[in-house]
Design a protein around this nucleic acid. Structure first.
Length: 849
RNA sequence: GGGAUUGUAGCUCAGCUGGCUAGAGCGCUUGAUUCACAUUCAAGAGGUCCACGGUUCAAGUCCGUGCAGUCCCACCA
């Protein structure tokens, strides 16, 4: 036998993937309807986690299914340079060597990180393969590939020309550790207790959490309707400070909550988002007092050089000394922004950056969503996306890091307001144009700016055949956590650049939690590495285990028991093939026609299963599709059909059934099914991966399907009675039953009967679940347990009959409900009555004997 | 403050457009080792579908309210 007893995935998976690759199985067909998916690019420097496993798993199921349907299916792989993310990793690496990024020029740093990433590049590609992703490697893209960079520049240019890009001095979320600005969406807000200091401030007392910023104050604000302070509004007041007296203007602004603190707020426009807004409204100057490294500058006098926190302590001490500190509220809860990478408190910093005017981009996106142009799984995420887009503010796309795509803009050294677009030779730091000297913007794009064009940039927009063939994408599958940062931007830029929404459907999976529903994190030590799971249980088991009981948008705990169950299922497929191989050693021959009742029944079940799985996958109900497959293969085929077929074999049909099972199981368990296909080698030099979905299955006879259903009922009841009375190898008899007469061998085998004989009048216990006349030879004293069971069944049937009668006596029901439903109820009532009658007869027989 | 979402067996979850006598995996009980598989087979136990109200012939499924939880967004010093 070619197939060993237990399926050992690690012995086959690598070879099978290599075979697919060598055979170019994943190149799209030249013809057929297009089905295209682009993989959300993982960080080129990192390892894949379970989130990637689910994305690749779901996409691969969809793509393999559509490939089998004869479509021109493409799964395009790629990787992300992941600008700031990767640079942060590299900085940690440098720190271990006692170095910092500030020891290098931008060019050196870029080239070092390039090498650093290149070293790890095989990593994720190997992991794609281990996950069985049927990607077309010839179309692999990296976010720093020339075509992606050029696309980012072209988009920037278009926005520049159309006035959507502007350079502005604005408050920016700034991390003083990483020394770069962030988009709003990259900031993590956390609740924390921060002391609220009440201090004397000229004629006022005011409350602040940030006394150290008072050197940057240019005003003090009160609510316009606050009678306490009316007389000061519009005046300039003198304030005694720790560095001596200074003056500020008093302004009235709605922003102030008269009930908070003392109803007076000091205004520091350069270091607070609220204050900046106030300053804009009242035309107040902004005074920067914090350096990019997080220390205070020369405007703070003796506090210069201190970090913000050091300065806070020092200023508070100084205030105390000068008797300016009134009190401190230690219980104040405050929300503060943190760097999502290093947790440093985000410092609002006044900086010149490139911004994208978002509302002109958001509006078409909202319209497309509202018009229902994109299907969302789950649907509710669409509503959330619309809400997000409606409130979207301008996007800061400048990052002060080296690892990224340089912004193609140059500034006139003599006129800071004169910027020109130039993407021709960005290696030049200085260029001359029209007799003027320009210096390159040292910043790079936010990674999301370039990755937003991923769907069409990877397909070589605008002229390439790929773009024409595969855009828009059929499906975008990713985690719901990047709905806002990525999906929203792909949608907006896709519409802006190509005039077409970039995908037809968006499927969002939830977070993968640990077995106890806890978030996975390095600090908790509960992170599961998908590669470890593959090592232990196999790639197919990981894939099927992860989609078991999964639904779109909901978080899901990762459970090893589900993986084990899936591993067992893979083994089941293996052993089904092993058995069939033992009866069909070589390529099968002969006419495929159903002969037995079991043959007709299994063909009917296969027909339903193939259709159900297709419907589920068309609707992206992955979990339901898998469950349908699982129960068909295990319950129907292995437990019933194979056992029945042992009584009477139909080898050509058996072979067809195995082949059909391998085909429909392949998207869910690509490795084990292909391994079986190759090992059996019934169709030499073919790949299951590019073999067609089952079609044109043999016809079956519905009457004979019902016959087998009846046989199943009989067998099951005999087994149950045998169990209830604790007797094995019982003897049975039957009367006036062609069905049983024709299937004696089968029944004896499946019900494990010692004998089955035809009689005119039977003795012992009569079956109640079937209309066929069947008796089990048991003396009544041995069957006492069984009478209890019957009594219980009688009670539940009576209840069912009452319920059904009540329903059918209700005229509203019979008149309003669809006829088919009413007919069904009537049939159910009839069946219940028949069954009850049979049970009662049996009970009566026990009582009289 | 605004928005979304969850509450179904001991555990983790399915249940799409209302027809359910409510399912799965794991766990649990009982029995089976001869011929594909103990990563197995057979038979079972286990649920007022969070609560209350409404719509409907019919509600786990739709609507409202409440209770409990989760997430996202938002400028309170």
């Amino acid at each position: 036998m070619k197939l060993p007893k237990v399926y050992e995935p690690s012995l086959y998976e690598a070879d099978i993937y290599a075979l697919w690759e060598k055979s170019q199985a994943f190149l799209p067909r030249k013809t057929g309807k297009s089905y295209s998916v682009v993989v959300p690019p993982p960080n080129a420097n990192g390892n894949l986690h379970l989130g990637h496993a689910i994305t690749l798993g779901l996409q691969d199921i969809a793509v393999r299914y559509h490939r089998a349907r004869g479509e021109r299916a493409l799964l395009l792989p790629g990787a992300d340079h992941a600008g700031f993310e990767t640079q942060a990793v590299y900085e940690n690496f440098l720190a271990k060597e006692g170095k910092s990024r500030f020891d290098f020029t931008r060019e050196e740093l870029y080239s070092n990180i390039w090498d650093f990433v290149a070293q790890n590049r095989d990593n994720y590609q190997g992991q794609f393969r281990r996950l069985g992703a049927s990607v077309d490697w010839s179309r692999h893209s990296f976010t720093l590939d020339e075509k992606i960079v050029k696309r980012a520049y072209a988009t920037f240019r278009k926005m520049w020309d159309e006035g959507l890009i502007y350079r502005g001095e604005r408050l920016v979320n700034y991390c003083t550790f990483h020394r770069t600005g962030f988009a709003d969406i990259e900031v993590i807000y956390k609740e924390a207790k921060t002391p609220l200091y009440y201090m004397k401030y000229g004629p006022f007392t005011l409350a602040t959490t940030r006394p150290e910023t008072k050197f940057g104050d240019t005003a003090v604000a009160v609510h316009p309707d606050d009678e306490r302070y009316q007389k000061y509004v519009g005046q300039v007041v003198e304030v005694e400070g720790v560095n001596g007296p200074f003056t500020v203007q008093v302004v009235a602004d709605e922003m102030v909550d008269p009930n908070f603190g003392t109803g007076v707020v000091k205004i520091t426009p350069a270091h607070s988002f609220d204050d900046w807004e106030v300053a804009q409204r009242h035309n107040l100057p902004a005074k920067r007092i914090i350096n990019h490294d997080g220390t205070l500058n020369h405007l703070t006098g003796r506090f210069e050089g201190m970090t913000v926190l050091e300065a806070r302590r020092a200023v508070v001490a100084a205030l105390k000394e000068k008797d300016l500190l009134i009190k401190v509220d230690e219980n104040y809860q405050n929300r503060m922004g943190h760097c999502y990478k290093c947790d440093t408190i985000i410092e609002p910093m006044l900086m010149e950056q490139w911004f994208v005017d978002m509302q002109p981009l958001a509006k078409p996106a909202i319209a497309a969503l509202q018009a229902g142009k994109i299907a969302f799984y789950p649907e509710s995420k669409k509503t959330q996306l619309i809400t997000y887009l409606k409130n979207l503010r301008d996007w800061n796309i400048s990052r002060q890091i080296a690892w990224g795509i340089p912004i193609p803009a140059y500034q006139n050294v003599d006129d800071t307001d004169d910027w020109i677009y130039n993407a021709d030779d960005l290696t030049q730091e200085i260029i001359e144009k029209d007799g003027k000297t320009y210096r390159r913007d040292p910043d790079v794009f936010d990674t999301w700016f370039s990755s937003s064009s991923w769907p069409y940039a990877t397909l070589n927009y605008p002229d390439d055949a790929d773009y024409k063939d595969f855009y828009p994408l059929s499906l975008m599958e990713t985690g719901f956590d990047i709905l806002f940062p990525w999906v929203s931007r792909m949608l907006m830029l896709g519409l802006y650049v190509t005039n077409d929404a970039p995908f037809k459907a968006v499927y969002l999976h939830g977070l993968i939690l640990d077995e106890h529903g806890q978030k996975m994190s390095k600090s908790k030590g509960n992170v599961v590495n998908p590669m470890d799971i593959i090592d232990e249980y196999g790639s197919d088991a990981l894939r099927m285990g992860i989609i078991t009981g999964m639904s779109a948008g909901n978080n899901q705990p990762f459970g090893v028991p589900k993986v084990i169950s899936a591993r067992n299922f893979a083994n089941k497929l293996w052993n089904i093939a092993r058995y069939i191989e033992s009866v069909i050693p070589r390529a099968p021959q002969g006419e495929i026609i159903p002969r037995t009742d079991a043959d007709h029944w299994i063909l009917s079940r296969l027909d339903t299963t193939v259709t159900t799985i297709a419907d589920c996958l068309d609707a992206y109900h992955f979990s339901e599709a898998y469950e349908t497959l699982y129960h068909f293969v295990w319950d129907d085929f292995a437990d019933w059909y194979l056992e029945a077929a042992k009584a009477e074999e139909n080898l050509p049909l058996l072979a067809l059934l195995l082949q059909s099972i391998l085909k429909i199981a392949h998207p869910f368990a690509p490795f084990v099914t292909e391994t079986i296909w190759q090992t059996l080698n019934w169709a030499p030099d073919t790949l299951l991966a590019i073999t067609a979905w089952p079609e044109d299955l043999p016809e079956y006879d519905k009457k004979r399907v019902s016959s087998f259903t009846e046989l199943k009922i009989i067998v099951t009841e005999i087994r149950a009675i045998a169990k209830a009375v604790g007797i094995q190898k019982m003897e049975a008899s039957y009367a006036q039953s062609p069905l049983i007469a024709d299937n004696q061998t089968l029944i004896k085998r499946l019900a494990r009967l010692g004998a089955l004989t035809e009689v005119t009048e039977g003795q012992g216990v009569q079956l109640t679940q079937t209309k066929e006349h069947v008796w089990l030879t048991i003396d009544y004293s041995a069957a006492r347990h069984y009478t209890d069971t019957l009594a219980g069944e009688a009670a539940s049937e009576k209840a069912a009959i009452e319920r059904l009668e009540a329903r059918l006596n209700n005229k509203n029901y019979t008149e309003h409900a669809p006829k088919a439903i009413v007919a069904e109820s009537q049939a159910q009532l009839q069946a219940a009555q028949d069954h009850l009658q049979a049970i009662e007869q049996e009970i009566a027989r026990f009582q009289t004997s």
